[in-house]
């Protein structure tokens, strides 16, 4: 059981110790990672995914329940503890969707891999705009289909106490539905994002700069109120997006009020 993970600060790109020297994330918490491109956001979640023990370029160390990850000598124990949706938009493996999901479930020693593979596909089809067939080759899936399948796989096959999400907003899948579907209760969620709505949805956010953790901020009550406005805007934009996707035109009198 993972109650907390801690990131013990290393060094930024210039070799200067990180301003945030220890970042503890508790089970049930959503932490956002924000910062400009190249500021080190993806590297931070890569360090967590690899259970870094001072050996990565950042020299960070990850503690699990206050114990350094390096002390878990049997690395198979750590495998499967973190699930990651990376920025990748495409698969490279030459397999059908069905075979791939089956093999992935087998690689994690899960029971009833065939049933599980079917469930992942059903869920992926709920997130994806275009339907995915079990006989499709992974490599021909569009960015949106691939992303939907990756999220569904993380939710059902890589079901892990630590969930790492890198720019979930990409590829046009419903990001809020995806976040909810990941069954985030009592999990540790680390969310890299450029999306203000996802950033404010988090309990806290760490700000990255020049490869280092620069500042840590707890989402204020005022920010949560701004979030409500953003969610309202988001519903309006979603409404317009759907109209356009369906080939409808929009005029100046369009009314989102029915959505509220």
């Amino acid at each position: 059981m993972i109650n907390s993970i801690s990131v013990v600060g290393g060094k930024d790109k210039n070799g200067i110790p990180e301003a945030v020297q220890c970042l503890e994330i508790m089970a049930g918490e959503i932490l956002a990672v924000v910062g400009t491109t190249g500021s080190g956001k993806s590297m931070l979640i890569a360090d967590i995914e690899q259970w870094a023990d001072g050996e990565t370029p950042s020299q960070r160390r990850i503690l699990i329940n206050q114990i350094p990850a390096g002390e878990f000598t049997e690395d198979r124990l750590l495998r499967g503890m973190a699930a990651e949706v990376s920025q990748n938009m495409n698969f490279v493996m030459d397999l059908t969707v069905k075979d791939f999901l089956y093999l992935h479930a087998c690689s994690r020693n899960l029971e009833q891999p065939e049933t599980l593979a079917e469930q992942v596909l059903i869920y992926a089809n709920r997130l994806s705009g275009e339907p995915i067939s079990s006989q499709d080759k992974l490599t021909v899936l569009s960015g949106g289909q691939s992303r939907a399948l990756m999220v569904a796989d993380v939710a059902l096959i890589s079901d892990a106490p630590v969930v790492l999400l890198d720019e979930l907003e990409n590829a046009g899948i419903d990001r809020l539905a995806a976040l909810k579907g990941l069954a985030l209760q009592n999990k540790i969620v680390v969310l890299v994002t450029h999306d203000p709505m996802l950033a404010l949805l988090a309990d806290r956010r760490v700000i990255m700069k020049n490869g280092g953790m620069f500042a840590l901020h707890t989402t204020t009550g005022e920010e949560k109120r701004v979030l409500q406005k953003l969610e309202k805007n988001n519903r309006q934009i979603s409404f317009l997006r759907d109209q356009l996707r369906q080939g409808l035109t929009i005029n100046e009198e369009w009314s989102p009020t029915t959505l509220e």
Partner: peptide, 14 residues
Amino acid sequence: GDIVSQAEREVFRQ
């Protein structure tokens, strides 16, 4: 490993 999904990494490793 940075250019493929976690699921692909796990299947390949197996």
